[in-house]
């Protein structure tokens, strides 16, 4: 039944290769850079032939770097930990708050529900810079500036609307009668929520959680203003590589590779839930 000609297949292969090159090449180049010193990176013309070194990774892990201008100290690993901690905690809090809210918005129609849901979504409309100044002042007055708690709270601006709106759609797609069938068979509201609604929406929850994690991980501006050196995530910490003696491209590349790994791992892990999500479509009666 294969009707594609050889020419068509060759053209298609070329097109796919081009697309892959376009998207993968920057990452590939960064991986290469992370194994080079600044000297080989800045060669003209650039070459992919070089003597690989683990110096960059070593520097990141030990937190010390000898440069021409002297010894540079930074704390990349604790930045990485901060990123991990802030993102995980934010997403966890976002899920705890967002899933019941999404269920309420999706299932229980109550007065003003659409308005509240839209207000929550509108948090995503405003540029972060708009709210940052008043937020900074409030946080300083409240003593929340430069605390994990304060940052996690602000991160809810990013993760909560996302989780709420994605998961709500999944709850709405589950026929209500499936829950009714379970309830009428002798189960209460909460048992139905945990045993039927939650498992059926799990692919959506996984997708929303993953996206929220990536958004939180990539956040720069809130952490830049509201966190000091010991609370800042990698996105802000990477600024330390722009030094008086020049930009440390090698370390930046190594830092990027290290900071991609957790989200990449998470995405690979969550993939099976995401695929399950596609088969959920068959539930619709």
């Amino acid at each position: 039944m294969e009707h594609t000609s050889t020419l068509e297949r060759v053209l298609r292969a070329i097109a796919i290769t081009l697309v892959i090159l376009f998207f993968i090449f920057p990452i590939f180049w960064i991986v290469l850079m992370s194994f080079q010193t600044n000297e080989t990176i800045l060669r003209v013309p650039p070459s992919i032939v070089f003597e690989p070194t683990l110096q960059n990774y070593q520097a990141l892990i030990t937190g010390e770097l000898d440069t021409a201008a002297g010894k540079l100290e930074f704390d990349f690993m604790s930045n990485l930990f901060n990123s991990f901690y802030l993102s995980t905690a934010s997403v966890a809090l976002g899920l705890i708050l967002g899933i019941p809210a999404a269920y309420a918005f999706g299932r229980l129609k109550f007065r003003g529900s659409e308005d509240i849901a839209f207000t929550l979504l509108s948090f995503r409309f405003a540029p972060p810079l708009l709210v940052l100044l008043p937020l900074t002042i409030y946080f300083q007055k409240l003593g929340l500036a430069d605390t994990y708690f304060g940052l996690i709270w602000v991160y809810q601006l990013i993760v909560l609307p996302l989780i709420l709106w994605i998961v709500r759609g999944y709850f709405e797609d589950i026929p209500a009668d499936i829950e009714y069938a379970y309830r009428i068979a002798g189960h209460g509201f909460w048992a139905t929520f945990f045993k039927i609604a939650l498992p059926l929406a799990m692919p959506g929850i996984a997708a929303a959680g993953l996206l929220a994690f990536i958004f939180a991980w990539n956040n720069f501006i809130f952490a830049l203003v509201l966190a000091s050196a010991d609370k800042q995530p990698v996105t802000v910490g990477a600024l330390a590589f722009v030094t008086a003696s020049g930009i440390q491209y090698g370390q930046i590349a190594a830092g990027i590779v290290l900071s991609i790994l957790p989200t990449l791992g998470l995405a690979l892990y969550a993939q099976r839930y995401l695929v399950e999500g596609l088969s959920l479509g068959a539930v619709k009666g």
Binding site: Y180, A181, Y182, I184, G186, G188, F189, I196, L280
Partner: peptide
């Protein structure tokens, strides 16, 4: 609430639990 009424219902839209097979649906 429905759970306390001791009624059984067959739904027009079937509403079978999609995650378990027919036998387990019936025996639920």
């Amino acid at each position: 609430p429905p759970v306390k009424r001791h009624v059984a219902m067959a739904f027009e839209g079937y509403s079978l639990y999609p995650t378990v097979n027919v036998r387990d649906n019936i025996a639920f």
